[in-house]
Design a protein around this nucleic acid. Structure first.
Length: 312
DNA sequence: TCTAGACTGTCAGCCCCTAT
DNA sequence: ATAGGGGCTGACAGTCTAGA
């Protein structure tokens, strides 16, 4: 609608959109407008969090580099996850020391000229990370390894994932892609793959109730507060591999210093039953299994592979 | 009893989804 | 292009039934 001038008050376009919606013949998407506040600040205990997003030269954390970082601080009520305040994004570019691939420019709009000679401010990023009680990203398994390699300050923060830790599929959403969720859940569109816009849209999504009425942020907090137990079928006899696979165990071949064997990630509460199953089914009554227990400080980090085994 | 066809279950391979 | 999970599909083996 750029260039279109309509008479009347500022909300004239909104009224036109409402008229179209009311016919039942149209779906109208509004451009995403960042909000500063979603819930009243009633003086309840709050937590400061960061929504983080990186744009990189590619998908390989070993080979590729960050070219843009956005951090959006926000505050949520510790008890129910209601988002009380959203602060201005902090955005920075960094020269990756190599040309930005053409497909990345096409995807993100970031060109060589945008990053030439630029460097992310280590002190500013470290200060943001240190102040965050929780770091959230949409597909944290992607963002966390990149950020940990570049900034040590992110390594000891608790992380949560707005893609994996909100029950999108169970809530009727056929895709967990950020743009799709903002469209279907909020009826809004935005310029995707711009790090600051992605972050602000992510916070907006977490503050928009699911069809059940629950806040996505509340579901995310419930999930990320759980501890995960990784149960290892240590030295399981080869003849049991099919039984392990059928039960959902995955094989780790011991690459890059990782443990070698069959493992299963389970809620801590379910892990005891899993260990009993291993004893009865795989180890002939002996406790042959191993277990690692970890929470949000390690989840989505490559360091999950280095978590020490629980004492037997 | 043998054969062909239909049906069922399993498994490997492939593709898609997410992030850039 | 990467990684990991999930779902779909085709190939294949095994079983069952009808007909000769």
């Amino acid at each position: 609608m750029a260039g279109v001038t309509l008479p009347g008050p500022d909300n004239a376009l909104d009224r036109i959109a409402d008229v179209l919606r009311s016919t039942g013949q149209y779906r109208v998407l509004a451009r995403f407008r960042p909000r500063e506040q979603y819930a009243e600040d009633g003086g309840q205990p709050k937590v400061r969090a960061l929504f983080a997003d990186v744009e990189t030269t590619g998908l390989d954390v070993e080979q590729d580099r960050i070219i843009q970082l956005a951090l959006v601080p926000f505050e949520y009520a510790a008890e129910d996850g209601a988002i009380v305040r959203v602060h201005e994004p902090w955005v920075g570019f960094e020269d990756p020391g190599r040309p930005v691939p053409a497909e990345i420019t096409a995807l993100t709009g970031i060109r060589d000229a945008d990053v030439a000679g630029r460097c992310l401010d280590d002190a500013a990023v470290a200060a943001h990370a240190a102040s965050a009680g929780l770091v959230v990203a949409h597909n944290a398994a992607f963002d966390r390894p990149f950020l940990e390699r570049r900034f040590a300050a992110f390594a000891d923060r608790p992380w949560a994932c707005s893609m994996a830790e909100v029950p999108w599929a169970a809530s009727g959403f056929s895709s967990a892609k950020l743009e799709f969720l903002l469209w279907k859940s909020c009826g809004e569109f935005f310029d995707g793959h711009r790090a600051d816009e992605d972050c602000r849209a992510g916070v907006h999504l977490l503050a928009t109730p699911l069809p059940s009425g629950e806040l996505p942020m509340s579901a995310l907090l419930r999930s990320c507060r759980r501890r995960t137990a990784r149960v290892w079928a240590a030295d399981a006899p080869f003849r049991h591999k099919d039984a392990l696979r059928a039960r959902g165990y995955r094989w780790s071949g011991g690459e890059r210093g990782r443990l070698r064997g069959w493992y299963l990630d389970a809620d801590e509460a379910a892990a005891a039953a899993e260990c009993r199953w291993l004893e009865e089914r795989i180890y002939g009554g002996r406790p042959g299994w191993d277990r690692q227990t970890y929470g949000a400080r390690v989840r989505y980090s490559d360091r999950v592979w280095a978590v020490p085994l629980d004492p037997r």
